[in-house]
Amino acid sequence: MPRASTVATLPPGSTLLLHTDGLVEVPGERLDAGLRRMRRTAASLAREPLDVFCDELLSGLPLARRDDIAIIAVQLPGH
């Protein structure tokens, strides 16, 4: 299958989160509900140090614990 590439410029201090579906999927719930919840949680933590961001994100979401979870988080330096 063809894959697309995208380039985006992120502002200083931004946090970029890449994740597998195990972070947002909860059995019996629509995927978009899990994505909205994760976006809200991540946005509230975006200015935290990266270790705090990752720990709080994982502990603050209702994880189904039935799927593997992988996250990659990158935080750009501030101004």
Rank of each mutant, 00 (worst) to 15 (best):
M1T: 15
P2S: 15
V7D: 12
V7R: 15
V7E: 15
V7F: 13
T9E: 15
T9D: 14
L10P: 05
L10N: 10
P11K: 11
G13S: 04
G13Y: 05
S14P: 03
T15V: 10
L16P: 02
L17V: 03
L17H: 00
H19K: 06
G22I: 01
G22H: 01
L23D: 01
L23Y: 00
E25F: 02
E25V: 01
V26A: 08
E29N: 04
E29W: 11
L31Q: 09
L31Y: 07
D32N: 14
D32G: 13
D32S: 15
A33D: 15
G34Y: 05
G34C: 07
G34M: 11
L35V: 15
R36I: 11
R36D: 15
R37I: 09
R37E: 06
M38I: 07
M38S: 07
R39F: 05
R40T: 12
T41C: 12
A42S: 07
A43W: 04
S44C: 08
L45Y: 00
A46G: 10
A46I: 02
P49C: 04
L50P: 00
D51L: 09
D51R: 09
F53H: 00
F53L: 00
L57N: 01
L58F: 06
L58T: 10
L58S: 04
L58G: 08
S59Y: 05
G60M: 10
G60I: 03
P62G: 08
P62W: 07
L63I: 12
R65N: 14
R65L: 13
R66P: 05
D67C: 10
D68W: 09
I69Y: 04
A70I: 07
V74M: 05
V74I: 12
Q75K: 07
Q75Y: 03
L76F: 12
P77I: 01
P77F: 01
G78V: 12
